[in-house]
C-alpha cells in the first residue's frame, strides 16, 4: 500500500473566525430559536382564530409607544455591534471594546423600555389565553435579550482585557451573529403582538 500526502494542512488557517464551524453552530442555534418563535406566533394566531373576540372584550391591545422605541433601539445596538466587528477585523481593539459596550448599554435600555411596557399590559397571564400568549411571547423575547446582554457583557470584558485580535475574534463574530438574530426577531414579534390585534 502506497501512502500519499495530497493535502498539506500545515499552511491552512487555524482561526478562520468568519468561517469557523462554531459560526455554523450558532446558525443552528438561531434556527432552533427561530423555530420556537415561529411556533409561538403560530399558536398566537391559532388561539386568535378560535376566540370569539381577540383581544377579549374590555381589553385593549398593548400600547405602541414603548415597543416602537425598542424597535429602533435594538437595530441601533446591532449597528454598534457591526461597528465593533469592523474594529475587530482591523485590529482596533478600542473600537471593538467601545462598540460592544455601547451595544450592551443600548440593549439594556431596550430592556428598560420593555419592562415599562410589560408593566402597562392591560391583562394578566392567568385571565385569558390572550394574556397568556402575550406574556409568553414577551417573556421569551425578554429572555433572549437578557441572554444576549450577559453574553455580550462577557465579550466586552474580554475585549477590554485585550483578548481579541483580528485572528482570534471568533467570540466576537458569533456573538454578533446571535445579536443580529435577537434584534431581528423582534420585528415579527412586534408586528404580531402590537399590530395584528389592531389590524385584523
Amino acid at each position: 500500500m502506497e501512502h500519499r500526502i495530497e493535502v498539506d494542512a500545515a499552511e491552512l488557517s487555524r482561526f478562520a473566525p468568519h468561517d469557523h464551524p462554531l459560526w455554523w453552530g450558532i446558525l443552528g442555534a438561531v434556527a432552533i430559536e427561530a423555530a420556537v418563535v415561529a411556533n409561538l406566533l403560530t399558536s398566537y394566531f391559532y388561539l386568535a382564530a378560535q376566540a370569539e373576540a381577540w383581544p377579549p372584550d374590555g381589553v385593549d391591545p398593548p400600547a405602541l409607544l414603548w415597543p416602537t422605541l425598542v424597535l429602533f433601539v435594538l437595530p441601533l445596538s446591532s449597528l454598534t455591534m457591526w461597528w465593533a466587528g469592523k474594529g475587530s477585523d482591523a485590529g482596533r481593539r478600542r473600537q471593538l471594546a467601545l462598540g460592544v459596550t455601547a451595544s450592551v448599554g443600548l440593549a439594556s435600555l431596550a430592556l428598560v423600555f420593555r419592562s415599562i411596557q410589560i408593566a402597562e399590559f392591560d391583562i394578566r397571564w392567568d385571565e385569558h389565553a390572550y394574556g397568556s400568549i402575550l406574556w409568553a411571547v414577551t417573556g421569551f423575547h425578554y429572555t433572549h435579550v437578557v441572554s444576549a446582554i450577559v453574553g455580550t457583557a462577557v465579550v466586552a470584558v474580554l475585549a477590554w482585557r485585550g483578548y481579541f485580535t483580528p485572528e482570534r475574534q471568533l467570540g466576537v463574530v458569533v456573538d454578533t451573529l446571535y445579536w443580529y438574530f435577537v434584534a431581528g426577531v423582534f420585528l415579527p414579534i412586534y408586528l404580531v403582538l402590537y399590530w395584528a390585534p389592531r389590524l385584523l
Binding site: 500500500m1 502506497e2 501512502h3 500526502i5 493535502v7 500545515a10 499552511e11 468561517d19
Partner: peptide, 18 residues
Amino acid sequence: EVSAHVGGLRTDRRETIV
C-alpha cells in the same frame, strides 16, 4: 493499492481539517 491522505496536522494538539 494507494491511499491519499492529509498531511501537516499537528500531533501535539487536537486538530481536524475543515
